[in-house]
Computed example of a mutant assay.
Amino acid sequence: MSIHDTLNSASRFAASQWRAAGIEGRKEEQRLWAQVSVYRDFLGATGQAYLFEDYLKGIAPRPRPHVSTALGVRQDGTSQKVLALLLRAFDETPEKQLVSVLIHLLNFIVDTGQLGACEDYINNRLDYAPLAIAHFTTRDEAEAWHRGLVEPPSPADILIGDEYYLAWYSRENNARGMYRDYMLEPYVEELTARGIPPTSPSFETRAEAEEWLKKHPASPFDFVSIAGEHYLAVHHKRLERHSLHHVASTLTEWEEEKKRAAEREKTQDGAVSPEGKDE
């Protein structure tokens, strides 16, 4: 089983426990199971699945999963509660392998010094722009970086100019690539539908807007006007930069992508007979 399949199975287990806790009215337990799922989301968003796979290979088999020493000395409350929940689940469920993966995932985040970044992601994921791990001016620069890595983060979003791309890599066959990822377009659509404030800051050039945004970061989305055209400014805290998205052209491109996606789905559906067999 690949590491991605292993993580997906562990995530499904956490989701089932979240649902059960909700049905039975155990609200605090449900909240903690939701946090377990976001640890998995953080690992995926930062492209660390293969690093985690290597971490698992270095763990000696034990009757009960070990607890990271670094986590054991923390007194922050939430991570300790999550750990206690997982250890109790390990003792009570027959799905011990899946719970072990979730415990080791928390250990991995702590042992690699990422708990602070992970908790920031957990606490602010609804307030931040979709996470991108790197920025490049051109696609050629991005592809040179991607080719130059022995094992690129996978999968993980990057920014090329102002656009999101998903960079992927398969350890199993050493294949790699990247493609346009429409992460931000739904935000532009929704925020524009709510209405563009008539008092948005106005600039003559993009350079002026970028300089102003350095001292007035978007939080994380703000509209600005450049040469009379509306743009959505997006603050990428991790990258310490802003991207600027021309509203009119972004909405047009997003409509075209939605049509393409609908056509792809229609084509895929048409390739399967009513009995579920390929025609």
Rank of each mutant, 00 (worst) to 15 (best):
M1K: 04
S2N: 13
S2Y: 04
H4P: 02
R12F: 13
A14I: 13
A20W: 00
A20Q: 03
G25K: 05
E28S: 09
R31P: 05
W33G: 07
V38I: 15
V38G: 02
R40S: 04
L43I: 14
Q48M: 14
A49L: 12
Y50I: 10
F52L: 04
F52A: 10
I59R: 12
I59W: 00
H66C: 07
S68F: 12
Q80W: 01
K81D: 05
L98H: 04
S100L: 08
I103Q: 01
F108K: 07
F108M: 06
V110S: 14
G113A: 12
G116M: 06
A117H: 05
A129M: 12
L131S: 05
A134N: 04
L149N: 09
D157Q: 11
W168Q: 06
Y169N: 01
A175N: 14
M178C: 11
M183Y: 03
E204Q: 11
R206Y: 03
A209Y: 10
E210F: 02
A218G: 15
A218M: 01
D222T: 11
G228V: 13
H235V: 03
R238M: 05
R241V: 10
S243K: 00
H246K: 10
T252M: 01
E256N: 09
E257G: 01
K259G: 08
K259V: 15
A261S: 03
T267Q: 04
P274E: 10
